[in-house]
Design a protein around this nucleic acid. Structure first.
Lengths: 339, 339
DNA sequence: CTGTTAGCGCATTCAC
DNA sequence: GTGAATGCGCTAACAG
């Protein structure tokens, strides 16, 4: 029963034509002169035999694999999970497969993606980057295949990123609208692309509201639970009245902050409100459930895949501007400040 | 500068030999008669030109792609993230690439993986399964390529799964050791492979301790936050003294349970202790941080990849037995029962 | 409109 | 020990 897959020759034979004719019909390119009747015979034969072109042979001939390589620094980050999902769906819709390659940023030369490119397994690379991927760009250039950066922007390179600045601004404005006046920021990596943008958005919002910027209210928390907890403790240790609202750069640091607040016996949202940038299932899993700014992470993946396919096709597409946040998700971690 | 990749002909030319000889040397198969001096010339040439075999051409010739397809029902599940990481690393170590394919269990025929198999893009399939993937097996058979199931076992099919029963038992024993006597279970899907195993482990531990099994203490919670919260509420609504210890089948349902406990004003771990099966970063992100049973999820991915490669090679390897838990991770959600 | 021809890069059988 | 010849399945120029 399970006979081997039919190939083009089988289809052509069954339709009584030459393989080249079958190829032409099945390629379905515009402006091909083939008699309707012949075309139909070939189509029927292909359907009857459940013909699927051998991607290897086609790739060898055309030097196109219709596969994209996806390079991620970590798999267990909700941001990247969502981006991968978006990329996978967009790639599938465009007829591309997705090859995944984990790249440990701590080991510079690690990563299978160089091999993927060198052995012609992929037509291009989708690169999800943390802020601190130092030598990545250099490595990428050497591969000789087109690539698109995700989650950060570097001048002159194609990439798609999120509008972190606006996200941060919306988060602060939410707290301001509730009546908060002392709003602090659990910041990301100070030198990083997204980290910087979030601080800028925080300042934007304060400025628009006429509230003076206080440097001591910006505490670097990095992207870990402990970092978030430490930063929160430093904030609480500040002299003078403490902040009543907190904007965390990430969900992870937000949860660290929550833990420090709990440990200090400070009620959320009764005494302190917390908003986090990014949304994911975990936001609803912590206590109290976090109010968040939902980012277009999945769309980022999809847009990046689309852009890469354009690049592969030899076009010079416009890199999309920063993707705006999808909006505020109000949950239980924010409320009016205690009077 | 960026001249096109060298191919075998270039290497052979540079070494002054025929391509077939170069191929022989580079294939590096045992029992090949090639003069040491010739071999060295070829190796040198390959190194100088940074030769990488074209995977497409090789695949076309040998009908092997050295790529594995990975089918996952969801990307944002920590269990699958870890399994993917394990699979990716093992595959890379074995010289295989990983093609990812999302498969929505709600849409029966969805999933690119069928195309991957049909077009010879992968040598085999690694299939991460939820309990409820009904028609998956049937679909898999039709692809005609070898496959390995992850996270569940079905008689007669190769697969690697976790020892959920033992995990559950360890979780209950931990609570028993602390002095708890009324221990309830937030169960997974009652009909599912892992769900059943966890209930069995729960009963094992009770029985070994001589504590009678009470059916009303097993509440199906599914795999969602809401499911966990609902189940917990039902448990709290039970007449008589309430359970002091809870074993949740998953992290997700555990957090739902925690939320319900918080909402009811019940202290964790002061009044109720909670243990969850599975460990992931989120366990440390909730409040209080969850005591968990750490499972060998990453190893599951790695073992599955290894098994699949054996299958592809035509061997008939033993499917590994269930993977035992890595142990208990004690955090803040468990303590002695209030006296 | 359709068939013939050539070749993508490699592994492999067969000569010598 | 090494080279010559063949073909994996497909596409694309060129004939006719």
């Amino acid at each position: 029963m399970n006979r081997p897959r039919a190939n083009l020759k089988d289809v052509a034979g069954r339709a009584g034509v030459d393989v080249s004719t079958a190829s032409r019909v099945l390629a379905n390119k515009p402006g091909q002169r083939v008699a309707d009747e012949t075309r139909q015979r070939i189509l029927d034969a292909a359907r009857d035999l459940d013909y699927r072109p051998n991607a290897l042979a086609r790739g060898l001939r055309t030097s196109r694999t219709f596969a994209l390589g996806l390079v991620v620094p970590q798999l267990d980050n909700p941001v990247f999970s969502a981006a991968i999902r978006g990329a996978e769906m967009a790639a599938a819709a465009l007829g591309y497969s997705l090859l995944i390659s984990h790249r440990d940023p701590d080991r510079p030369m690690a990563g299978e993606y160089r091999r993927l490119a060198a052995t012609h397994q992929v037509d291009g690379l989708l690169v999800a980057s943390l802020d601190d991927d130092r030598n990545l760009i250099e490595e990428l250039g050497e591969t000789g295949v087109p690539f698109v950066l995700m989650n950060r922007h570097i001048d002159g390179m194609p990439g798609v990123a999120l509008d972190s600045r606006q996200a941060s601004r919306i988060a602060v404005e939410h707290l301001l609208d509730l009546g908060h006046r002392r709003v602090a920021h659990l910041a990301g990596r100070l030198g990083g692309f997204n980290g910087q943008a979030r601080i800028a958005g925080y300042r934007d919002a304060l400025e628009a509201a006429g509230i003076p910027f206080r440097p001591e209210f910006v505490e670097p928390a990095g992207y870990t639970v402990e970092g978030g907890a430490d930063a929160m403790r430093r904030l609480l240790a500040l002299p003078g009245p403490r902040p009543t609202g907190i904007v965390a750069a990430t969900l992870v640091s937000a949860t660290g902050g929550l833990a420090a607040l709990h440990a200090a016996g400070i009620g959320v949202p009764d005494e302190v409100s917390v908003v986090a940038i990014h949304d994911a299932p975990i936001a609803a899993m912590v206590y109290p459930a976090l109010t968040t700014i939902r980012m277009s992470t999945e769309e980022m993946g999809a847009k990046a895949a689309g852009l890469l396919v354009e690049l592969i096709a030899g076009r010079s597409p416009e890199a999309p501007p920063l993707l705006p946040p999808e909006g505020l998700i109000r949950r239980q971690s924010t409320a009016k400040p205690a009077t």
